[in-house]
Design a protein around this nucleic acid. Structure first.
Lengths: 223, 223
DNA sequence: TTGCATTTCAAACATTTGTATGAAACTATC
DNA sequence: GATAGTTTCATACAAATGTTTGAAATGCAA
């Protein structure tokens, strides 16, 4: 299998270039130039450009999914088999948000790549995303256990809204930042997660989250 | 100025093709074939492919923005200058959702085009979207008048979340439909709008919406 | 070393794509 | 009906891009 050096160099260069400039205007020639390997190496090692992109994306999204499930498992164990709805939602949106947002300096190439992947929807990635449903079903199941009185439809809407807020915050963080002229602190990922969790819980239960929220969405003094 | 026939034929064909197959794999040659005009006509009438796409998008999004502002104005007039937060949010997300979702048969080419535009983010459209902020500021201002005690940051987060839920529901309606196995009714646009408005209001005020919501997010009987 | 498989390389391929050109057809005005 | 301006057309251009090829290099086992 040789040293894998070329393969790894391609993956690194590709991830960085895609993260920096998007899928639209990065060519194989750009990638091999940055990786300092031969043009044919991409097709030799990956088969095609799309398969290279797919490999980059599955690697990263498997990691995120694993992290989500770990958090979910911890939460369920801590709750004796039934996790609180807050902790379930936190496990759902936390890993993604922590991975993709936060201080610029800490934002890894991997994170920037995933942001790109969520902004520019390119065919090989779309195909993979379509298989994400089974993963989400596990969270739906946990939510059902946590909120046995909640209707199925409301459950799915709540799950959907939680993901929507998280995902769109990643996609459009720049717009929110401009719109609020910096008032919305996108570096405070923890606070952002709690906001999204709080809103989602309210959406699901009709009541505010009361405990252990380091940052709450509604912080006004006015009643 | 001649009959404009060619120009219109191109716009129609392009919108339909982009709506059906996405920006990725529709070429100018596909468009002119569908419109039954000469290849050079696109560049003659629009200057370039990107300008054609831009024209399609601005036309549609200006229409949506106009509709939003009309609704906002109506709401403010009805409330004597100060609209309820519910009606403001309804004016914000309603036009987009009504335009893009609903029964298949009623879903116009224009709507399907806008969905595409929101899924596949292509450069000319991205450029236009960046100018959308001024439009949103008007809604932020209305919200500020409606909720004078709400902190600025919370206001922007609420606006952002409302848009996030609406936007992502459009983008990912298929996933929600599959995930919920049809339980979440995406044809009931009215109900969907009220769900999003209700959640957004809760996010902003910490309380449930109480009046005139034809469909509420929280419909469980359990307390 | 010899032989065999893996990997690298330069070059070419084959398309596809948006755009440009210049002549022809058309239209409206005088 | 000649003229000038506009629009249409067939065709060519030029550049970019993913992929393939076949030979050279490299690594490794016997």
């Amino acid at each position: 299998m040789a040293s894998d050096h070329t393969r790894a160099a391609i993956l690194n260069a590709a991830e960085r270039l895609y993260a920096d400039r998007g899928f639209g205007d990065v060519t194989l020639r750009d990638i091999v130039a940055a990786a300092d390997v031969n043009l044919a190496a991409v097709n030799y090692h990956f088969g095609s450009k799309d398969e290279l992109i797919a490999e980059l994306f599955v690697t990263r999204s498997l990691a995120t999914n694993r992290e989500r499930l770990n958090e979910l498992k911890s939460a369920e164990e801590a709750g004796g088999g039934r996790a609180s709805i807050e902790s379930i939602l936190r496990a759902l949106v936390g890993p993604t948000l922590r991975g993709c947002l936060g201080p610029d300096r800490e934002r890894s190439t991997a994170a920037r790549f995933m942001i790109r992947a969520s902004i520019e929807s390119v065919p090989p990635i779309r195909r993979i995303k379509n298989r994400e449903i089974d993963h989400l079903r596990k969270f739906a199941a946990a939510m059902r256990r946590s909120l046995p009185d909640c209707s199925e439809a409301d459950l799915y809407w709540g799950l959907h809204f939680a993901l929507a807020m998280a995902h769109q915050t990643i996609r459009d963080s720049e717009r929110l930042s401009k719109l609020s002229e910096g008032l919305c602190d996108l570096n405070d990922v923890g606070g952002m997660i709690e906001r999204i969790v709080a809103v989602s819980v309210m959406a699901l239960t009709g009541r505010e989250v009361e405990k252990k929220a380091p940052a709450r969405l509604v912080t006004r003094d006015a009643r």
